[in-house]
Write a protein that binds this DNA or RNA. Structure first.
Lengths: 355, 355
DNA sequence: CCATTAAATGACACCGGTTTCTCCCGGCTA
DNA sequence: TAGCCGGGAGAAACCGGTGTCATTTAATGG
């Protein structure tokens, strides 16, 4: 009895089970097992059941490397981003991973430097070496034209997350930055603000223009034009936010509200106000953009435009993996993400309305 | 002439070059090319040079999937973390990717839920399916005993990032939380603070105990014992920070300083102080822990203990990849990370020293 | 009942590498 | 000169799957 123990795992000592083991145990060829794994319709129900049973019993999991080798494609998705944005990446990531759960795909992260000489070749190497199943590009890489061209000839599907549609062919997750900033502008105007400072982003980002256009147009519609001295250009960084806010707050009459094109810069506004002993929101209303984790943690909590980052990541990933039920709102090409203003404690009517 | 053009890329039309192409072009067997790729010493210098030349010229890159299949191991590193900590993960990640650059390894991220039934099996599946070359565990997963046991039998090297040494065998990146909080405590005491509130973390984290012990011991050494009503237990979350701070600030006499065991909760202290119209730092000094991106963006900028997260990620990854020059400070087993207090604007001597 | 056809399955090569084993060759020893 | 040794290189099998195509089986028609 002792020698012939271990009835089940014949010859499978410690080794991971392979497709051959399953084939042998189910008395079929490995090809048929392969058919079952890949859900081929040409397998008799009875055979499929038998094979499935063996797979279950053994706890067999096909090797993604071997599968990928044969498929000439991996089961990896790439997430490509440029360093500076660091803050929200984890959320995109978690959203994407949400969509990937149970799909057999994994997410490989790949930061890069868009200004480097090696930017496009680097991304290209990454995609080709790993034979990625798909790639998600975050802004600002998602807006890069050179990369866009390189991708055309690379036989790799990808999704871009950006604030404007790039072309009609590729898949995108587009946010309606214009309408969102319009909403913020309308809100401020309705509160009674007339002297409003605007801190824009750096010109190389598409979102910069979108946000500014939406904001200004909405104000103009309500008969308000912001003088150019109240529009300053930031760099989407905290430090630039401080500097821009100081410039704005040095003017007389002082603006009663400042809209910053992202939360980082809005935090900079807080800092400047703190230094100048200007109270938020009593003497200055502040609105940001992103609803980054920090927004709700500032005191007072920042009124901002919510970017449903996680949801966007989820959508992007789900566009890249084969799935039976297409995501709701998935029109095949671009998916529009609706942004909205989240009113918190950093905004209120001006104490002494101008005009 | 027209027909026989394209002199170089014989038969290699659009296809990616393989080891066979290199072998053919260099007039050697594929095995010899493989030897060159893997830096085998048994290749004549002349042969190696010829092969290298062809590789360069063609721009050949070995396929990691095929290589992995033969090696029974992938060229992927896993980064396993539990969701809630989201904030600093990107930094660990970028640090790790720093170390991976050019190594041929890639990083696969894998969030998980430590409280789920499927936690250990899930991580196990991840590691085994992908045949990971190595894994990095972040706290609190890095402290999990069940996972630790499961890993023993899994033939996969891993590094744990944590605040205490777990055992002597496995590789770790350990931070000296005790000494760091001791430094903060000493600093506060030296400023003249006598009534100091302490917001601890949740008991299931090892770091919670470490930080508390270090803090309290240092104060005791200087003859100061914090009464139990000034020690409250938070959950490492913003909301818990608010609640704990409100509890502390409701006491009379009010504490003149509060140490929160992470920056999230410190931001909560800011919030509570803001609501109660208590000025930081004039009426209340606040110290946090982590030096998260938010710390410097709060107003006033938060005095906190800097966790060199990025550096820790870099170290962890470099411990997992084969490298000629071992990292400095790499003693093979655990690497100690030194933390230090970063004094910013949220701390100053109390306005009316107690005692 | 056999021919015809579609469904179901299997044999074998292949994906792009590595490992194992064998062979060849030149130099050294006996 | 035979015999041994070890560096250098190649042939063939293998890693664990999939593609192609042929073959078997079952279902249908005449």
């Amino acid at each position: 009895m002792t020698g012939s123990a271990q009835p089940r795992s014949e010859r499978l000592q410690g080794r991971r089970a392979t497709i051959n083991d399953i084939a042998r145990l189910a008395s079929v060829s490995k090809k048929t097992v392969s058919r079952v794994i890949n859900q081929s319709p040409f397998v008799k129900e009875e055979t499929r059941a038998r094979i499935d049973a063996v797979i279950q019993q053994i706890g067999y999991i096909p090797d993604p490397q071997a599968r990928g080798l044969a498929f000439r494609r991996s089961f990896l998705l790439g997430l490509v981003y440029d360093n500076p944005n660091a803050q929200y990446i984890v959320n995109i990531q978690d959203g994407a991973l949400d969509a990937l759960r149970g799909s057999g795909f994994e997410l490989v992260v790949h930061p890069c430097d868009r200004l480097s000489e090696d930017f496009v070749p680097g991304v290209r190497r990454f995609v080709e070496r790993q034979k990625l199943h798909g790639v998600i590009f975050l802004p600002p890489v998602s807006e890069d034209q050179a990369l866009s061209r390189a991708l055309q000839e690379m036989d790799c599907q990808y999704v871009r997350i950006a604030s404007v549609r790039m072309d009609n062919t590729s898949r995108m997750i587009v946010s309606n930055d214009r309408e969102a900033t319009a909403e913020a502008a309308t809100y401020l105007e309705a509160l009674g603000h007339r002297r409003i400072g605007f801190i824009a982003g750096p010109p190389q980002y598409r979102s910069t223009h979108e946000r500014q256009i939406g904001f200004m147009n909405a104000l103009e519609k309500r008969g308000l034009v912001i003088p150019s001295e109240l529009i300053v250009e930031g760099a989407y960084s905290f430090e630039s936010g401080v500097a821009c806010a100081e410039a704005l707050l040095a003017q007389r009459p002082r603006p009663t509200a400042i809209f910053a094109c992202n939360d980082e810069m809005a935090a900079g506004v807080y800092k400047a106000a703190y230094r100048l002993k200007i109270l938020i929101p009593e003497e200055l209303s502040v609105i940001g953009f992103d609803d980054s984790p920090m927004a709700a943690r500032l005191s007072p909590a920042l009124t901002t435009i919510r970017l449903p980052i996680r949801e966007m990541g989820r959508l992007a990933a789900s566009k890249l993996i084969p799935s039976n039920a297409p995501e709701e709102g998935d029109t095949g090409g671009a998916a529009r993400i609706m942004l909205h203003l989240v009113v918190r404690d950093s905004s209120q009517p001006p104490s002494s309305p101008a005009g």
